[in-house]
């Protein structure tokens, strides 16, 4: 069942550019990776980072700068951007991670605003105008990816890699400790672990993946702007994750797709896009706690359980 769904998703992604505008699809993929990075923190460690955009935006500028000023190949530039974000993530984590809940969110928000300000004032970013004319260097220094359709498949491959990385982390010995910290941090400490070290590493990995998304985005559009560092993007990724379903790998991916398509459809109505986002967020929080994917999963599990119980006719063990 699960494998069938994954194959279906992959098949859909492969044929999608023949039916949908590829740049829209690539935008979705960038945000799929971005939302995955955010979900790693909120869904698996319980950390609400309200400044995730700083990792996206910073890396977009770093990647763009490298592509503009050096001959390095595309993947090196994107990985360099991701690395810079991962370092920033470790630093922010080091400062913020001993706080929890709203305090953690506020500290990460403050950092993000600071990064926004620095990038606004930096010379290399082009300030308010953003960084224009980022070239798309060859992949591995040999493959020309200037063709949009070709580039779509490159971005799809990168997205798959990022998600595999997230999957690996979540299902690693380390990921098991992260989930334990999310469930009961004092207990984890009482068992001899130092939770903050695990959280700092999680911040760094998450920031690195967000940075990877930022680098992809810079290469897709050929420009980087302050929007990518702004608090509205930090908020949007929260919406994507909650809408799709927290703590599931596929949830944020679906959420990213929904929000990007919705923004695209509502763009013509200006401010209404924001209002629609707000209303959807409220509806999700009130009625679909588990998000689209979470609710669907729960629905199928309930049906399965009923199908299993019915023929045996025995009630579930009551304890």
């Amino acid at each position: 069942m699960r494998i069938a769904l994954i194959l279906l998703g992959v098949a859909a992604a492969l044929i999608a550019p023949f039916f949908v505008y590829p740049v829209l699809l690539m935008t979705i993929l960038c945000f799929v990776v971005f939302a995955t990075s955010f979900n790693l923190l909120l869904g698996y460690v319980g950390l609400l980072c309200f400044g995730q955009a700083m990792f996206l935006g910073l890396s977009a500028y770093v990647t763009g700068h490298i592509l503009k000023t050096t001959d390095l190949s595309l993947e090196i530039a994107i990985l360099a951007g991701a690395l810079v974000s991962a370092v920033l993530g470790a630093f922010v984590g080091f400062v913020a991670v001993r706080r929890s809940g709203i305090q953690f969110a506020m500290i990460t928000f403050a950092f993000a605003q600071f990064v926004y300000f620095l990038l606004l004032r930096s010379e290399f970013t082009g300030g308010e105008n953003g960084m224009q004319g980022i070239p798309r260097s060859e992949l591995f220094g040999i493959f020309d990816v200037s063709d949009t359709l070709t580039f779509y498949y490159v971005i799809l491959g990168m997205t798959a890699l990022a998600i595999l990385l997230a999957y690996r982390v979540i299902h690693s010995p380390y990921g098991e400790i992260l989930k334990a910290i999310r469930d009961n941090e004092p207990r984890v400490e009482s068992l001899g672990f130092k939770p903050e070290r695990f959280k700092i590493l999680a911040m760094s990995i998450s920031a690195g993946i967000a940075g990877f998304a930022g680098g992809m985005k810079a290469a897709v559009y050929g420009f980087a702007t302050l929007t990518d560092v702004s608090w509205t993007v930090s908020g949007e990724v929260i919406l994507m994750t909650l809408l799709g379903g927290l703590g599931t790998l596929t949830g944020p991916m679906v959420g990213a797709g929904i929000v990007i398509v919705m923004n695209d459809e509502l763009a013509q109505f200006g401010e209404w896009a924001l209002i629609a986002q707000g209303i959807i967020l409220i509806l999700v929080i009130l009625f679909f706690r588990r998000g689209v994917v979470g609710e669907a999963g729960a629905f199928f599990r309930r049906r399965q359980a009923r199908a299993k119980d019915a023929p045996a006719g025995k009630p579930r063990e009551a304890e």
Binding site: P173, Y174, G175, E176, L191, G192, F198
Partner: peptide
Amino acid sequence: ENVRVALQSAHGRAFRFLSPISS
């Protein structure tokens, strides 16, 4: 998994974020 988390404490490989759980 609950018990395995505790066993990881002495095991000392809890930072291996690229290893599969099978490790």
